[in-house]
Amino acid sequence: MWANREKSHIGDGLPIYESDSYSYGGTLSLSRFFERGGQITLSRTVDKRDRSTSNNLEYSTALFSGRYGNVNLRAGIQRYRYGYQSNGSNQRYVSLDFSLPLAAWLSTGVSSNNGNIRANLSANKSFDNSALTSAGVNLAKLVKDKHNGDSDYSASGYAAFDTKYSTGTFSLSRPDNNRLNGSMTAHGAVAYSDKSFAASGLQEKSGVIVKTGFIDDAVLSAQVNGRNYRLTGSNNFIPLPPYSTYKVELMNDKNSMDSFDIVKGRTSNVTLYPGNVAVYQPEVKQLVTVFGRMTTENGRAIAHAAVRNHIGKTTTDETGAFSMDVDKRYPSVSLTTKEHGICEVDLDLAKAKGVKWVGDVVCAAQTVLAKR
C-alpha cells in the first residue's frame, strides 16, 4: 500500500505551477496464492487544483515465460471526473505483449492494445571495464491501426555511464509524431581537505582522500571494510557514510598489470562524522620488473657483474642477462665490474606496466650510452 501528498505554491523565484493533490493505492499479488496469478493494482488520485478525480484498476500477469519467449497481459479500467462534469468518462484497455529473445541482448515481439498491433524490437547490452556501463534501444512500429490516434512508430534509448568523477544516465525518446523527450542525470561529490581537492562519482556526507601521486594511468586498489575501490591519478576521493570507523588498506588491483610496493601506510583507520574528509597519503613505489642483457660497445656480454638501482641489486649471469625491480620514478640502473668500472643507463619505462623486456643494454664506463 502507498500514499502520496503534493502541494506547491507559486513564488517569485521559479516559474512553476501550483499543485494541490493527493493519491493512494495498493497492489495485491495473486501469485502468492496460485501460480501465475498476477497482480491487481487499485489507485485513486484527487487533484484539488483542477478539481479532477481519477480511479484506476489494473490487472497484469505473465501468461507464459520460457526459452522461446514471454507473453504478458495487462487489462484495466480508468474513470475520470472533472468538477464541471456531471458524469465522468470511462476508458478501458487490454494489452497483450509477446517478446522473443533472439540473443542475450536482443529480442523482438508484438503487442496489442485495444486493437492496435505493434511490432517491437529491443536491444540492451552491458559493458565491462568501460565508462559506458550499459546501453539500450527500443523501437516500435504500428502494423495495424484501429484509428485510436496512436503514432505510426515510437523509439527510445538510454545509456548509463560510470566514471571517476560522475555517474548517471542519458535517455532520449520519441513517444509519438509530435514529441521528442530527452533527459540527462549525473551526480557525484567534490571534497576538500588539507589543501587537497578530489572528486568522485559516488555521493556521501563524508569520506577519505587518498593521495597516491600517480602521474600516469596506473591503477591501485583500496579496500575499505571489505569493499574495493579503484584509485587512479594523483588524488582520489572515496565517499563513505558518516558515524562509522573504517579500515583503509591499499593493495595491487587484480585487473591491472601495475605492480606496487607500498613502503609506508599500507593500512589506515579513520572514524568519520558528517562533513569529515580524512586525508591519507601513503608512500607507494610503482615497480616494473625489468629483463635484459648487459653488453659492451662491441656486443660482448658482461657476465657476473653487479647491477644496482636505488631499491635493490642483482648480478648478471654468464650471458649477461639480468632481471630486477625498478621504481618508475627513478628508471636508472648502474653496473660495476673490475674490468669496466662503473656505468649508468637510463631505461625508458614511461609506458611500462608490470614487466618489460629492455633487450641489450650497451654499457660504457662512466657514460650514459643508451635508453631502452
Rank of each mutant, 00 (worst) to 15 (best):
E344P: 00
L63R: 05
I40D: 07
H9V: 10
L142F: 03
S154V: 09
G359W: 07
A306G: 05
F237Q: 02
V358N: 05
G136D: 08
Y192F: 13
T167E: 15
S65E: 15
G182P: 01
I215Y: 12
C343V: 06
K338P: 04
A104I: 09
K338C: 03
N129D: 15
V279R: 06
G168N: 06
Q203H: 06
R36F: 08
A189L: 06
H304M: 10
G168H: 01
S173N: 06
I262D: 00
R300P: 02
L250I: 00
V333K: 06
D325F: 08
L42M: 12
K7I: 11
T27G: 06
H340A: 01
K351D: 15
A370Q: 15
T41C: 06
N276D: 15
A191W: 03
A365H: 08
L369V: 12
V277Y: 03
F161H: 04
A189H: 07
Y17P: 06
T296N: 09
R81P: 06
K313P: 00
H310D: 15
R36I: 01
V290I: 07
H310M: 12
V270Q: 07
S86C: 07
A303R: 08
K7A: 10
N235F: 02
V326I: 11
D97G: 09
V307N: 03
S244T: 05
T232D: 03
L139S: 13
L30A: 09
N178C: 03
N4S: 13
A199E: 12
P242E: 08
S43F: 04
G354I: 07
A278Y: 01
F291E: 09
E204V: 00
A350N: 14
G66M: 03
T163W: 01
I302L: 06
Y84Q: 10
P242G: 03
K264M: 06
T133W: 03
N113S: 13
F291R: 10
R329M: 10
F98W: 11
K164M: 11
I209V: 06
A140M: 08
N269F: 07
F33S: 11
